[in-house]
Design a protein around this nucleic acid. Structure first.
Lengths: 239, 239
DNA sequence: CCCTCCATGTGAACGGCGCATACATTGCAA
DNA sequence: TTGCAATGTATGCGCCGTTCACATGGAGGG
């Protein structure tokens, strides 16, 4: 099976592209019913193949989920990259560098909210023991990964003079934490915000981050109004 | 069963405190083998009871996990409260208010790292459709919940003059996001940091947050060195 | 052109799981 | 004392992940 005239062969004994078909079905099922409810057997059923066939392409269920993680990471990076591509503004300018970090963060949050189950899989227990260095080369997405995009954005801020090299040191940590935290809380429904409030929250959060990195206030744009006063949904307490 | 002479009765037909025994066993099993690997039957086995007995105390497995979430939230709040209690410094002073936010955040991160599986359960898919307002009153932990502690800390910053009321507006969002994000990334092993680096990362992150809220630099204490230069573990990329 | 090999599929089976139902035991209260 | 509600047991259903022996059929060597 080097080449196939009709790769997803409909009715032959051999499927032709079962691995990808399973991944696609898994992606859809996870999105529909969550990672907990997903079953390998159902994915196989969906593809029209016996449950055992999956084991010709994945060592076990964990391996399939791992592939989902890798794929999701690629999609996330792609979304961020596209957001960067959409920016107007002279390359190298401080305003552009600030916008780059902002839209990158927005894309991160937006991706999480639009694909919550996938996002949970990507950072859930399935990737705990996942060694990305062992991912086969052809399965890896092309281009910069999400982390690299963040690193480049921060470097861009320094190059454009928006923040100092001293503030840059280790800035990946608060930056990534902030954006990932907001995304996680939204996905976990710990912050029950509607779309408009969510945009405000993201803007406010990124603004706080940039200010925390020492970015000049005039680069931050207009002040962001705080979303509604009751975004709590953590813990119950008696009385 | 209002009162029992020997509540965890060892050999009688009726257990006496099965609900709590199951929760305790579940907590241990989840901590040991992760939320994915946890099974109600195993918890029942552990307690020495038939699998169906659990259904006298929990509507289904999801309900049991929900109780675990509530319990975890209580423990988290307790850890934060204890951290606040351990602070020296005159109440109402700006330094004290800053320290309060800092130790609170550290406690949050520390809790997540020390109880990673429980933390994942607390903010994972199990609590997606969990309505905290319906938690029975006696199951709720006492005292302030985690979110309230954060709110109070931020209010304390304003009262002590460490940040302005304008900066305070909506500050829960970046604050909670940042701390929760760092905790999540550490738990997901997306940031492979050792204990020392972790402390540095937490300090650096909280420092950035406070600076982002407009806190005067002299209140932030000494500059925090950035942890090692390679804290990435997000996404693989080809070449 | 045929034949063989082996990647890829099937079918049946195992033990474990969540959950429902019917039955057993027991403490409490009338 | 007796009856009942609370609580635990026994059993069974269907689904799950995983394994293993076997079937199929396309590719490449003779």
């Amino acid at each position: 099976m080097k080449k196939l005239a009709i790769p997803p062969n409909g009715d032959s004994y051999h499927h032709g592209d079962l691995r990808n078909a399973l991944l696609q079905a898994a992606l859809r099922l996870v999105a529909e019913k969550g990672a907990e409810g997903f079953s390998l057997r159902e994915a196989a059923r969906e593809v029209g193949v016996s449950p055992a066939a999956a084991y010709r392409h994945f060592e076990d269920k964990k391996a399939l989920m791992g592939s989902l993680v890798v794929g999701g990471m690629g999609q996330l990076a792609l979304a961020m990259e596209r957001a960067v591509d959409g920016i107007k503004g002279r390359a190298g300018s401080a305003a552009r560098a600030v916008a780059e970090l902002a839209v990158t963060g927005q894309a991160y949050v937006e991706f999480a909210v639009r694909h919550p189950e996938q996002f949970q899989v990507m950072f859930g227990p399935w990737c705990d023991h996942l060694d990305f260095t062992e991912v086969p080369s052809e399965a890896k997405p092309r281009g910069r990964d999400a982390y690299q995009i963040l690193v480049d954005s921060l470097d861009g801020l320094v190059r454009a003079g928006a923040i100092t090299p001293a503030a840059r040191a280790g800035a990946e940590l608060p930056a990534w934490s902030m954006v990932h935290g907001l995304a996680s809380l939204l996905v976990a429904k710990a912050l029950p915000l509607g779309p408009a409030e969510r945009a405000q929250a993201t803007a406010l959060t990124l603004r706080t981050l940039l200010r925390g990195l020492g970015c000049a206030p005039r680069l931050l744009g207009p002040a962001v109004p705080a979303p509604d006063p009751k975004p709590c949904r953590t813990v119950p307490c008696r009385r």
